[in-house]
């Protein structure tokens, strides 16, 4: 069995085979592999006795269930109104320049993906970004770059 198949069967073991286990299984895969590969979705469909189109259709509905490969670290900059009012555009521009990619893209070394998100619940401390599970509020372009540089060094 491949790594992915193993992971799927572990998750199926843990959550069960009923339809309402689909979300936890998909989330489990994303947590481990950062995205849902075709292989993973086909395997899940087989295990849960669903059509692959159904699995893909469900996954593609949710922003956090990526179906394209993502970098090791995912940066999500909040782009909603209060962060906008406090200058999120400049933060995004600075990050784009530092990573040499645009929003939605992944760096060549596959270490970083830069995304935007709708409201992260930090409206009082904008602009804010989420790197993986870590929250960074009250950003300035300079601060954002410093934080990211620390991640880059750690790679």
């Amino acid at each position: 069995m491949s790594r992915t198949e193993n992971l799927v069967s572990e998750l199926v073991e843990k959550h069960g085979r009923s339809r309402n286990s689909l979300m936890p299984i998909l989330q489990g895969i994303v947590q481990e592999e950062r995205f849902l590969s075709e292989e993973a979705m086909i395997e899940i469909a087989r295990e849960l006795n669903l059509s692959t189109a159904d699995v893909f259709g469900t996954a593609s509905f949710y922003t956090f269930l990526d179906t394209v490969p993502r970098g090791k670290n995912i940066i999500r900059v909040c782009k909603t109104i209060s962060c906008h009012m406090k200058g999120k555009d400049e933060v995004i521009e600075a990050l784009e320049a530092l990573l040499k990619i645009k929003v939605g893209e992944t760096t060549h070394d596959r270490n970083f993906t830069l995304l935007t998100a709708n409201c992260l619940g930090w409206c009082h401390k904008g602009p804010v970004m989420l790197i993986n599970d870590e929250v960074y509020p009250e950003l300035t372009p300079h601060k954002a770059c410093e934080i990211l540089e620390a991640y880059m060094k750690a790679q």
């Binding site: 909603t80 109104i81 209060s82 709708n118 409201c119 619940g121 930090w122 409206c123």
Partner: peptide, 10 residues
């Protein structure tokens, strides 16, 4: 909780 501007539930 996803309304932009709300964070009381958190």
């Amino acid at each position: 909780e996803g309304d932009p501007g709300a964070f009381m539930d958190r």
